[in-house]
Amino acid sequence: MSDFLVVGGGVIGMMTTLQLADAGHSVTLLERGRCGREASWAGGGIVSPLYPWRHSAPVSRLATWSEGFYPELALRLFEETGVDPEYRQKGLLYLRVDDEAQAERWAREVGKPLERVSADFLYAKEPQAAPGFDDALWMPTLGSIRNPRLGQALRCRLEAMPRVTLREGSEVTGFRQSAARVTGVETADGIVEGDHTIVCGGAWAAELLERVWMALPVRPVKGQMILFEAPPGLVNRVVLMDGRYVIPRADGRVLAGSTLEETGFDKTTDAEAKASLRASAIGIVPALAECEVEHHWAGLRPGSPDGVPFIGAVPGLEGLHVNAGHYRNGLVLAPASTHLLVDALLGREPILDPVPYRLEGRVTSRR
């Protein structure tokens, strides 16, 4: 029997497992498919909310703490696994921002470097950016990470840790209970016992918690993205305009995203979305019109009512905990949200005030 069971092998689940194992605990991670292959793989990897000044204080606090964690994590994983998550801190350029005053006010309040820059600065940084802009907003400290590589590196590290048991292809179908305590999970291969169970199921978290009559307001929100096969140096940093973005990778490829679609658990792609994403990307960097779209995919974000994740114990059931509902910011918020939950599980001083993220008062029971 493990000290902890983690249900869901995305970045949230894998980071939770890593932190618990680092603290000396035995952990079994259960993933119905392969670790890191759902929303964690499908996203863009920007280590910030797209427009951070438009988010609530609880989201901003998690994002600010997490941003400083990624350089160290990426270096650690590269050294331990040989898989480079490709963390790049080259800043972000915002084109055509209509709430610039709010952005600048937010930056002053949180101490974040953000400034309006001239056209000369913009085109010196990104010569291929769309012509005609007189200025832009510039956030120099923002980084990005190649999220599929991050997932691969986390999985490799966990696989090598003696305190960790990875059970992929193991779908959780229910929870094992004794009175008002969860003592494990039920799978097609039998019961897996653990002292504590942590649901990190992303868009599927609500379905899992329905098994214990808990109505968690988390829903799937589809996002489609495309990947251009571009020459190295065409795009050098993240550029965002009108809610769409382009993200360069170290090998020159450029991601463009993303759509927001309420289609349930449907992950199919469509030509209309592909054309829209391509047009948006070309609107940001016209030279992408000459590049082939190499790949087109969709993922499911765990949408929540206000974008504030649910982090903490499930009311009325001992031994059951949740970390879900990060919406578009799962990778952005993962370090802080997982650390916050692990702090609670291990009785440590929390890195942030946990109250805004708790389930009490934010979820209902169907009993």
Rank of each mutant, 00 (worst) to 15 (best):
R88F: 08
F175W: 05
L114Y: 03
L114K: 02
A136N: 04
P162V: 01
E171R: 15
C200K: 04
R181P: 08
G132M: 04
K90H: 14
D84T: 11
Q177E: 15
L158G: 12
R176I: 12
Q128V: 01
E100M: 11
I198Y: 02
V117N: 02
S178A: 14
V97F: 06
V192T: 11
Q177N: 00
M139A: 15
L95I: 10
D98C: 07
D134I: 01
K90S: 12
E86T: 06
Y94Q: 05
R167T: 01
V97T: 15
E80F: 00
R163L: 15
A160Y: 02
W138N: 03
A101W: 05
H196S: 13
G194T: 06
V164T: 03
D84M: 06
A107Q: 02
R105Y: 01
G91W: 08
D134V: 02
V172L: 01
Q177S: 13
N147F: 02
T81Y: 04
L150Q: 10
L92E: 12
D135W: 13
E109P: 00
E79G: 01
D135E: 14
A136M: 10
V117S: 03
V172D: 02
Y123F: 13
R157W: 15
D99V: 09
Y87C: 01
Q102F: 02
E115G: 11
Y87W: 14
S178N: 12
D195P: 00
Q102W: 02
L95N: 09
V110C: 01
A205P: 04
L137S: 04
A119N: 03
L93S: 05
G169N: 08
Q177C: 12
L166E: 06
A153H: 10
E186Y: 09
G184Q: 05
T165E: 14
R88S: 11
E80V: 07
